[in-house]
C-alpha cells in the first residue's frame, strides 16, 4: 500500500538558492502559482469591461466580492470595507489552492495542506491585526484583553488567558486549515488505495473495489464542501480578528 503521506512530499522543480537559503521553486510553489493564475484570469476577465448590467463573469466576481463585503459589514462594521481587498485575497487564494488540490490527478498538490503556507497566511493576518490595532488605538489596544467591571484578581487571570489566546490565534488559524486539508487528502488516498487492493482480490475481481470507490466519490463531494467552508472560515476569522483590532470588542 502506498504511503498516504507521500502526496504531501515537496519536490524541487527548479532549485534556487540565495546564499545559504533554499528558495527553490517546488511543486507547492507551482500550485500556488496556478492558483494565482486562475484567480487572475477570473478577476481580469470578470472586470475587463465592468457593465451596469453584469455579464456572467462579472456577476460571478461581484457575487464573491459582495459576499466578502457583507461578511466585513456584519463582523467589522463600516470601517471594515477598506479591508475588503485583503480579506478577498485571502479568501480567494485559499479557496483556489483548496479547489485545485481536489483535481483527482496524481500530480495535483494542495499548498494549503502544508502548515508552512497556512502559517504564513495566518501570521500575515496576525501582523496586520496588530499593526491596525496599535496604529488605531496605540497602547490602548491592550485593553482588548481586559475584562470590564470584573473583580480585580479575576480580571488579571482572565487577561492572561485572553492574551495567551490572542497569541495562539495565528497557530489555531493555521492548524485548522492545514489539518482539515491534510486529513481530507489522507482519507481520500486511503480509500483510493482500498479500491485497488480490494479490486485485485483474485477470487472476486473488481466487485469488492466498488464499495471503497463509492466511498471515495462521496468523500470527494465532502472534501469539495470542506475546501469551500475552510476558505470561508479562514476569511471569517480574519475579519473577526480585524474587528477586535478596529473596534476593541
Amino acid at each position: 500500500m502506498a504511503n498516504p503521506m507521500e502526496q504531501f512530499e515537496i519536490k524541487d522543480i527548479a532549485p534556487i538558492a540565495y546564499g545559504q537559503y533554499d528558495l527553490s521553486f517546488t511543486n507547492s510553489a507551482l500550485w500556488m502559482a496556478l492558483a494565482l493564475v486562475s484567480v487572475a484570469i477570473f478577476l481580469f476577465v470578470g472586470t475587463a469591461k465592468p457593465q451596469l448590467v453584469p455579464g456572467r463573469w462579472q456577476a460571478a466576481v461581484e457575487y464573491l466580492y459582495d459576499f466578502v463585503r457583507k461578511m466585513l459589514d456584519d463582523n467589522v462594521g463600516p470601517e471594515g470595507r477598506k479591508f475588503a481587498p485583503l480579506i478577498f485575497s485571502l479568501f480567494i487564494f485559499v479557496l483556489a489552492c483548496n479547489m485545485l488540490g481536489m483535481i483527482p490527478w496524481v500530480g495535483s498538490f494542495t499548498p494549503t495542506s502544508h502548515i508552512s503556507v497556512t502559517l504564513g497566511l495566518a501570521v500575515l493576518v496576525f501582523v496586520i491585526v496588530c499593526v491596525v490595532g496599535f496604529w488605531k488605538h496605540g497602547l490602548h489596544f491592550f485593553s482588548l484583553f481586559w475584562p470590564k467591571d470584573t473583580f480585580f484578581p479575576l480580571a488579571v487571570f482572565v487577561a492572561c488567558i485572553e492574551f495567551l489566546s490572542f497569541l495562539s490565534r495565528p497557530f489555531t488559524l493555521a492548524i485548522r486549515l492545514f489539518a482539515n486539508m491534510t486529513a481530507g487528502h489522507v482519507l481520500l488516498k486511503v480509500f483510493g488505495t482500498f479500491v485497488v487492493s480490494l479490486g485485485l482480490f483474485s477470487d472476486l475481481p473488481f466487485i469488492l473495489g466498488i464499495l471503497p470507490l463509492t466511498v471515495t466519490i462521496a468523500l470527494t463531494g465532502l472534501e469539495v464542501l470542506i475546501a469551500v467552508v475552510q476558505a470561508y472560515v479562514f476569511a471569517l476569522l480574519a475579519s473577526i480578528y480585524l474587528n477586535d483590532a478596529i473596534n476593541l470588542h
Binding site: D22, L23, T26, S28, A33, S89, H114, V117, L121, L124
Partner: peptide, 17 residues
C-alpha cells in the same frame, strides 16, 4: 519545506494582492 514555501507564498500573495 518551510523557507522555500514561505518565500514563494510571499511573492505570489504579494502579486495577487
Amino acid at each position: 519545506v518551510f523557507l522555500p514555501q514561505l518565500f514563494w507564498l510571499s511573492v505570489l500573495f504579494a502579486i495577487l494582492y
